[in-house]
Simulated scan of single mutants.
Amino acid sequence: MAKQQQLAAVVVTLLLALLGPAACQDASTNGCLGRWRRDTAQGPLQPCPRIQSPAPVLRSSGLSVGYYSSSCPGAEEIVRKAVAEAVGSDPGVGAGLIRLFFHDCFVRGCDASVLLNSPDAERFGIPNLSLRGFEVIDAAKTALQTACPNKVSCADIVAFAARDATYLLTNNKTFFDVPSGRYDGRVSFANETLPNLPGPFSDLQDLKDSFASKGLSTSDMVTLSGAHSIGRAQCRFFLDRFAGRNDSFAQSLRAQCGGNDGTMVAQDYVTPDFLDSQYFKNVGKYVLFTSDAVLNSTDTMGLVTDYANNNQGLWEGKFAKAMVKMGYIGVKTSADGEIRAECSKVNY
């Protein structure tokens, strides 16, 4: 896994070098690279064009809790077992599974398009090069194909895995029902990731617009940002922001990074292995990304303060609801999707 992360870091570096700062100034798809690279001195970035995913359909989507109770009764337990085995040995995989769900849903909807493995697929878009958890989804799918072949979609496995990772990583063991019945998409393009996924350099308006384009509110955006209370981030995505600071936190970050852009640092320095509301206590001075720091604004600080001051329970409950709501984005049906036999490729 360490070698895979190092390779991803090298690929990112090469891509950024090839695209260069000029690529971040145009109004094409590459103009969105500003969300995923350092700012330059060449002036403000242009607004990012977006490929709109359908807004959530909360009533007639065809999703339901217990969707597999007849066709594959043990489906959710099989996924839960695969997730528990992986997260038990590495909590970072759990953070990766939650992120995988987010990155899937924001590009073409929650249709497992992020799992497709072809040279121009989403998983090879710049925002997705460091995604983790693919092997957990594959393990769950293999077990499900044995138990009930071609019954459980990869899209639902991704949603179940994110829910189960949340349960394992939260202090209060937050469990929530996940409506299921999604079908898998057949289309996946790397060049759709930059226009659709907010990045570590996104400002507040970009975050609001990105989430609104998917049918999610500013409140949902703040709530889901709490997922940054676990996981690790590459120094390339935050260290420049601390160049002018000499407090102990900034000094610690510089020491951990050691001048290496690809070094990984915990996103929450207080409780790095737990998904909790500590993130909201850190907002302001002790978060890594620009996209985290901008939540310290008049538009969002009220909710940030509520989450920081309410001993975990308030945020956990809202996080569960926001995850369920996100899971309705762009849901595919039998009319425009399929149940893949293998999550990494479409059926033939």
Rank of each mutant, 00 (worst) to 15 (best):
Q4K: 14
V10G: 02
V11L: 13
V11D: 08
V11P: 00
L14Q: 14
A17M: 09
G20R: 09
A23K: 09
D26M: 07
G31M: 08
R37K: 11
G43D: 04
P54L: 09
P56I: 10
L58K: 11
L58N: 05
G62H: 08
V65Y: 02
G66C: 07
G66R: 03
C72G: 04
P73M: 06
P73I: 08
R80Q: 15
E85K: 14
E85I: 10
D90T: 05
D90W: 04
P91C: 08
P91K: 06
P91E: 08
G96F: 07
I98Q: 13
R99D: 10
R99E: 14
L100E: 01
F101N: 12
F102C: 02
H103M: 05
A112S: 15
L115E: 02
L115T: 10
L116Y: 02
P119C: 04
D120L: 14
D120I: 13
R123T: 10
R123C: 11
N128A: 09
K141W: 03
T142D: 14
Q145W: 03
A147N: 11
C148A: 11
N150W: 00
K151V: 15
C154K: 07
C154V: 09
V158W: 08
F160M: 15
R163N: 11
Y167R: 14
N171C: 04
T174P: 00
F175N: 03
V187Q: 10
V187L: 10
F189P: 00
N191D: 14
L197K: 10
S202C: 08
D209N: 14
A212L: 12
G215P: 04
S217I: 05
S219L: 03
A227R: 12
G231D: 05
A233H: 01
A233Q: 13
C235I: 10
C235Q: 08
F238W: 05
D240F: 04
R241M: 05
F242H: 05
D247F: 12
F249P: 01
A250C: 08
Q251N: 15
L253P: 05
L253K: 06
A255I: 03
P272D: 09
D273E: 14
L275H: 01
F280T: 07
V283W: 05
Y286W: 08
L288S: 01
S291L: 05
N296D: 15
S297Y: 01
T298A: 12
Y307L: 07
N309D: 13
Q312S: 13
F319G: 05
A320F: 07
K321Q: 15
V324K: 03
M326D: 07
I329M: 06
I329S: 06
G330D: 06
T333P: 01
T333A: 02
E338A: 02
R340T: 09
E342R: 13
K345L: 07
